[in-house]
């Protein structure tokens, strides 16, 4: 356990500062845009940017994916097993996602309170009723994105560049095919049912109410599947 703790600490402590670099840069840019808008329009009523969480989403994805190679090599050199490395990586994702969800929840709510025309991603979708659910939702979305990119980078690393490109093209083809299927092949009733299911899964019920437990469960399930997939690959991953 002591060694696992050390590996987790390593992952978290060496990434911690990057979170704050990211926020410093993000809010500096937001401030700059606001200033430009303010100078242009002569008023401070517009913040100019909405849904700042999208940036965080991209950032956690990049951190999750880019960190893989260096950390895997470093921890393998220091004698850790892939199982330990996986647990440490998951802990890092929990850590980053937790902190960033917290910051984004607080900032989203504060910004909205100060400037009612600013909408956070969560606020725009679900409103501003429950701060705790806001945090949980963001946290799970970030986690899911981390796992998705982790899985992607593991797959790319495993099958090589050429095969990855082929796989990407094939997946793109599949997406187009599915869209075509929805538009032209499947009967309207089925499409409507699937759309309804997707809305329900994210908590938007048919009668206009919002059921928060559903997106939580959906995201947990998604994260779980991606996580298991990642583990299945990393436990067979060799150093290159």
């Amino acid at each position: 356990m002591k060694k696992l703790k050390a590996a987790i600490q390593y992952e978290c402590m060496t990434s911690f500062k990057y979170i704050w670099y990211f926020y410093a840069i993000q809010y500096a840019i937001v401030l700059l845009i606001s200033l430009i808008v303010a100078i242009g329009t002569g008023s401070f009523d517009n913040i100019g940017s909405n849904c700042l969480e999208i940036n965080s989403l991209i950032f956690v994805g990049i951190l999750g994916a880019l960190g893989y190679r260096e950390d895997f090599r470093m921890l393998i050199q220091n004698g850790f097993t892939r199982k330990y490395i996986f647990i440490a990586t998951v802990s890092l994702y929990l850590f980053i996602s937790g902190i960033m969800a917290l910051v984004d929840t607080i900032m989203g709510n504060v910004l909205h309170a100060v400037r009612p025309d600013y909408f956070s991603l969560y606020g725009a979708l679900y409103g501003y009723h429950n701060v705790l659910i806001n945090w949980l939702w963001l946290f799970l979305v970030y986690m899911a994105v981390c796992f998705l990119l982790y899985l992607m980078i593991l797959v790319i690393n495993r099958i090589g560049k050429t095969a990855s490109v082929c796989l990407g093209v094939a997946l793109g083809g599949c997406v187009l095919l599915v869209f075509a299927l929805f538009r032209f092949v499947l009967p309207g009733r089925t499409v409507a049912a699937i759309a309804e299911f997707a809305r329900n899964a994210m908590g938007f019920m048919g009668d206009g109410t919002v059921y928060h437990a559903f997106p939580v469960l959906t995201l947990l399930l998604l994260g779980g599947i991606l996580g298991i997939g990642s583990f299945a690959i990393i436990r067979r991953t060799e150093l290159k």
Partner: peptide, 16 residues
Amino acid sequence: VHEKLFCMSEADLYEK
């Protein structure tokens, strides 16, 4: 085997 074996390798695996 963590405390038993260590390998100094030619490849640079350390965090740069």
